[in-house]
Amino acid sequence: MSEEKTIAATEKEIVEEFSLFDSWDDKYEYIIDLGKKLPPLEDRFKINENKVKGCQSTVWLASDFREGKVFFKADSDAMIVKGLISMLIRVLSGHTPDEILSDKLDFIREIGMTTHLAQTRSNGLLSMVKQMKHFALAYKIKNGSITEYEHGRTENKSN
């Protein structure tokens, strides 16, 4: 899906989807629905190392790097955060580190969800975006020598 589209195109798509909603209730219902549909992260990824810091709710984020592209998977115990995560994954996953690093995620503002990026929300969306960009940066640096790398340790590997 997102692998064929540019980040900007996916963002535009999301903005268009949200423009159909009249009320905030509808927007939240949609986000909650996205949260419910996001496949749960396998338990082996739900470890401390993959926790995103600074969240009132818990967010786990794992990524891997294949053929020059970063792929994210994530989960949360809170449904709205999970819905927001689902959108971030849809936008950023499957793109190159450079594409991810240069994106400003303007769609969040355009769909009226800026408050979720505010410090006060402490829902970890901001930390989540930062962490996604950190992964991208790390892969970019490593990309000089390797093209296959998996980040987000699993229980097996950490044992």
Binding site: W24, Y28, Q56, S57, D77, M79, I80, V81, S122
Partner: peptide, 21 residues
Amino acid sequence: KAHPQDIGILLDNRGIAVRTG
């Protein structure tokens, strides 16, 4: 089956200020 944070966000969406966490 509902995270306090989700409840807090949805209450705020109706103008109701509570504390969660």
